[in-house]
Design a protein around this nucleic acid. Structure first.
Lengths: 150, 150
DNA sequence: TAGGTATTCCGGGAAACAACCGGGGTTTGT
DNA sequence: ACAAACCCCGGTTGTTTCCCGGAATACCTA
């Protein structure tokens, strides 16, 4: 199957959470953890990967938090997935198969498939998902209201 | 990224290896390990998953080995991937996100993507990959000749 | 027909690796 | 001074990979 790590899911939810929230003030990590129910320390770690990838922008100090670094329509799902996955496995030494069959057929086949999926993910932006959320009836009011249920 | 486990790659290569080899006698695990350079014990484990999934058929005793359980065009890549992946993770307890945004938007989005990829994989058969191998110039003679380099 | 051998089958479990999580401290802005 | 993002690093848990010892089964020879 296509396995995405929990970290990637987290990153996706966090970015959309911030994008969906239209407040002028930045969104604090604490709010997101309250909504998603994940340990705050772990989420901050993921957030910083997103900051380093140029997707989020951190604002320090009191009343600080995170904000999108670009417009919603300029951030693709592929960007987020890459930022989350590509963080620690820098080795990327693809176990090259010895057999001709493996090297010439199944490896290229898998690579092509991966590229196709990635292309598909690059075509979908955070903007698209936000519109979908609105269409699905997730109201901004409920969203913001839950900020105070900490 | 779309991460496939080594086990899945192995399963794919093994099945295609057997399918590409047109001999009447079954193919032994030992031959495949010699060609792919993988530990024999591990490969046998993968092979048995494929047997239980109804993709391969094991033939015991001397001159035994593995054979396709069905025609080449009736075995899809999706079948093989499912058989290899779905073996040990029977838990499948999808970590359901608490937030509305996660539950209503990103989870369905990911699921749809997974289903699309799976549908895509079901449409490609072992027969297709064998034809591709022949077109790519992987000769059957070389393939069989390597049987005796053990 | 009986026994020896080659091979698939089966379960358990060690070893390596990645994912997950937390601590302590530093920097930055209010 | 305080509140938050930042940074490094180590510990825990879980998954993947790999190995081992044996049992079952089929072929071969005598």
């Amino acid at each position: 199957m296509l396995r995405l790590s929990r970290k990637t899911l987290l990153a996706l939810e966090a970015v959309i959470d911030i994008a969906f929230n239209a407040r002028p003030e930045p969104v604090q990590a604490r709010e997101i953890t309250a909504r998603q129910g994940v340990p705050q320390r772990y989420l901050e770690q993921v957030m910083q990967q997103l900051v380093r990838a140029g997707i989020l922008k951190g604002v320090r100090g009191p009343r600080g938090g995170y904000r999108l670094a670009k417009e919603r329509r300029r951030i693709s799902v592929g960007d987020i997935v890459r930022a989350a996955e590509l963080a620690e496995d820098e080795n990327t030494e693809d176990v090259l198969p010895k057999s001709e069959l493996g090297a010439r057929i199944v490896t290229p086949f898998i690579q092509t498939l991966q590229e196709e999926v990635m292309t598909r993910l690059e075509a979908i932006t955070v903007e698209d998902l936000c519109q979908k959320a609105r269409a699905a009836g997730v109201s901004v009011d409920d969203h913001i209201a839950s900020d105070f249920t900490i």
